[in-house]
């Protein structure tokens, strides 16, 4: 049943998990501190009570957690597993890069691994270098793994439901700074949409800005500032990174003639490079060179003042867009 409810981002994740556990009797949900404590960010609160042993806590054993997700998925479960921080995924990367990715392909489709990995990433004030990284590009280099990243309560709900419904491994990347954000009216309870697609956050004529994740709000704030200067930016939020909606970006660039990609991840080897390359390869006529705005290639320092010098700030976005339009 469709209904409109007021939920913040964390609440929307919780609602999507509850609905998925309802929809799929074969769904199971597990991770560190997710069940009895309800999650270190409180996002999975109440689910253990509602769904009993289908929701359970695990040891701090990411390899076993992800392996258990793959194995149980092969046997007909639909696991949703939480990796508390993207940075912790690397102790178990084999299970994603060598294992989950290969299940369908090398078995000629005889086996599948319909599993969802929920994680969250990015810097928050004072976070250390091992709790700050934006690593989506590593996953996007691995065919066989779907990847999505959300920044609004509605998408947190919709994308997670699509991920659970998807019959392949999906990594859904959230951001802890969003969980306790403001409530918004969102629609819940419909059928999950197929994976893929983008969100047009702001129509504009002068420059196409492609972005994803929590930095989207910074991009939109920058675009609003530029509107006062007469620069009209079109902002596309790529909630699905694999599959990526290259066609939508191409269509927008065909109208604006300019392209800027903004991500919190490191610039070098970031997925922004792929977005730019696809547009350039398509032979699009550009009025100015495409630009990438990302983190300066560095480790992330804990000191807030130092981190601000490494990560893209609103001013960096504004000046980057200005230069793109002037160029």
């Amino acid at each position: 049943m469709r209904e409109t409810v007021k939920l913040n981002y964390g609440g929307a994740v919780n609602a999507a998990l509850a609905r998925s556990l309802d929809d799929y009797p074969e769904a199971i949900l597990f991770g560190e501190d997710v069940a009895v404590p309800g999650g270190v960010f409180g996002v999975t609160r109440g689910l253990r009570k509602a769904f009993g042993p289908r929701v359970f806590d695990t040891p701090i054993s990411e390899t076993a957690m992800l392996g258990a997700a793959i194995g149980s998925a092969m046997m007909g479960r639909r696991p949703i597993v939480e990796i508390m921080w993207m940075d912790f995924m690397f102790v178990a990367f084999d299970q994603i890069v060598n294992q989950a990715s290969n299940v369908r392909y090398v078995s000629e489709g005889r086996l599948t691994a319909p599993l969802t990995i929920r994680t969250q990433q990015g810097n928050a004030p004072g976070a250390c270098a091992q709790h700050s990284q934006n690593m989506e590009a590593l996953l996007l280099h691995v065919p066989g793994i779907r990847v999505a990243m959300t920044s609004t309560p509605q998408d947190a709900y919709d994308v997670l439901r699509s991920a659970v419904a998807c019959d392949d491994p999906v990594v859904v990347i959230e951001n802890r700074s969003l969980y306790a954000g403001p409530k918004a009216e969102i629609e819940i309870g419909g059928d999950p949409a197929p994976i893929g697609g983008h969100r047009l956050r702001r129509p504009g004529a002068d420059v196409t800005v492609v972005t994803w994740g929590s930095i989207t709000s910074r991009v939109l704030a920058g675009a609003d500032r530029l509107a006062a200067e007469g620069i009209d930016a079109e902002v596309i939020e790529a909630v699905w990174l694999n599959p990526f909606d290259h066609a939508a970006v191409a269509a927008s660039v065909a109208r604006t003639g300019r392209l800027v990609v903004v991500h919190e991840a490191n610039t070098t080897g970031g997925f922004g490079a792929e977005v730019v390359a696809r547009v350039v390869e398509s032979g699009a006529t550009l009025k100015s060179p495409p630009r990438r705005i990302g983190a300066r290639d560095s480790r992330i320092p804990a000191a807030v003042g130092l981190a601000a010098a490494v990560l893209p700030q609103e001013d960096d976005i504004v000046s980057g867009l200005r230069a793109a339009v002037a160029g």
């Binding site: 701090i60 940075d87 102790v91 004072g126 250390c128 091992q130 320092p301 000191a303």
Partner: peptide
């Protein structure tokens, strides 16, 4: 300020550092 509360080191004191990845 690079390390912060959870990830600093002081090898001159034989303290080869904190670590924020469990294990």
């Amino acid at each position: 300020g690079r390390g912060g509360s959870a990830h600093f080191s002081a090898p001159e004191y034989g303290f080869y550092g904190e670590n924020s990845i469990v294990g």
